[in-house]
């Protein structure tokens, strides 16, 4: 109830009628709640930065809170010279670029015909796509398929199976459906074929949704470690997230238990922290560039007609 009132208040009568007590309470509660929520996600990050800059001694005695103690940059130097880290970073960057470009291309090509009502068997085709959202072949059959295709332990296995994401395809399709048919008709009158219409008319008008879905794909590829964990054993093509996961797991108590040799070689916590940080920064840098499209894209896709 309060929520509704507050919304009405801000939309229609802001500045005209004084806010009531309950509205003030709501605002106070709202601000506190979201500041707390914001801090719960921000503080661990700040703590990680502090840890990565602190001396290992301060880190293992739990003294590091939000500010680094005994500031040093050796950890970063170490991580940036670590060939396994750099290699996995390269793999991840390359995977994100190639994967996103290919996925966006294929997903758009799939979405466009499916957005046209005149396509014969459209409903059936859609059903087939949606079916794959709900059911999959299962892990082992999929693995065997990849193996028979000679894809196991190869770079393409990281993005080829995930090229068309049905959910993202449906979002693009809905967006295409929202574009006026007249545009297409006028392009046809000018003599444009289907491909020309898609490339010259539809896609330029759909940049917001393209950017949004592109970001979805990019983040998904960047964060994916499951595919790599299943298919990749060759350290030369392990992406960042898998390397990070393994770095952390191989230094955790469970892994080191009863394994003295691993315990001697365990990775210090400050180096773990700087690895995590260095692996997060590249994808964080993408957000500001796509932010303006991102907001518009989500909004436009949701309101149709």
């Amino acid at each position: 109830m309060d929520h509704k009132k507050a919304l009405e208040g801000t939309n229609t009568t802001r500045g005209v009628i004084k806010t009531s007590f309950s509205e003030k309470c709501f605002s106070v509660f709202n601000y506190t709640f979201f500041i707390v929520m914001g801090l719960t996600t921000l503080l661990p990050f700040v703590n990680l930065i502090a840890k990565s800059l602190s001396s290992e001694g301060a880190v293992i005695s739990g003294k590091v809170g939000l500010l680094p103690i005994g500031v040093q940059f050796e950890t970063y130097k170490y991580v940036l010279q670590d060939s396994m880290f750099l290699n996995s970073l390269k793999v991840s960057i390359f995977l994100t670029i190639v994967g996103t470009a290919c996925s966006l291309f294929l997903t758009t090509l799939t979405a466009y015909p499916l957005s046209k009502y005149r396509l014969r068997g459209r409903k059936g085709l859609l059903l087939i796509f949606v079916f794959t959202m709900l059911f999959s072949g299962g892990l082992i059959p999929t693995y065997l398929l990849m193996q028979n295709l000679n894809l196991v332990n190869s770079f393409p296995v990281l993005f080829l199976p995930a090229m068309v994401n049905v959910y993202n395809m449906l979002i693009i399709k809905n967006y295409f459906e929202g574009l006026p048919d007249e545009l297409e008709e006028s392009a046809k009158l000018d003599g444009a074929g289907n491909i020309r219409i898609l490339v010259s008319v539809i896609v330029p008008l759909s940049l917001p949704v393209m950017a949004t879905i592109g970001l979805f794909f990019a983040v998904a590829f960047w964060n994916d470690y499951f595919a790599a964990m299943i298919y990749i054993t060759d350290p030369a093509i392990k992406p960042m997230q898998l390397y990070l996961k393994e770095l952390l797991v191989s230094s955790s108590g469970d892994f080191l238990k009863d394994n003295v040799d691993a315990a001697i070689n365990a990775t210090p916590q400050s180096i773990q922290a700087s690895s995590i940080l260095l692996a997060t920064i590249p994808i964080l840098l993408v957000y500001p560039f796509l932010q303006k499209y991102f907001v518009k894209g989500v909004l436009v896709g949701s309101v149709k007609g």
């Binding site: 793999v91 190869s154 940049l207 592109g214 560039f289």
Partner: peptide, 29 residues
């Protein structure tokens, strides 16, 4: 437009074009 978009993505990847080529060689290494 499309080029710009891909460039924006790759440019944000930190190392830019320079690093883009090296990983390409990686798997074939």
């Amino acid at each position: 437009g499309i080029l710009g978009f891909t460039l924006a993505l790759s440019g944000c990847g930190g190392g830019g074009g320079g690093t883009t080529n090296t990983p390409a060689a990686q798997p074939s290494d």
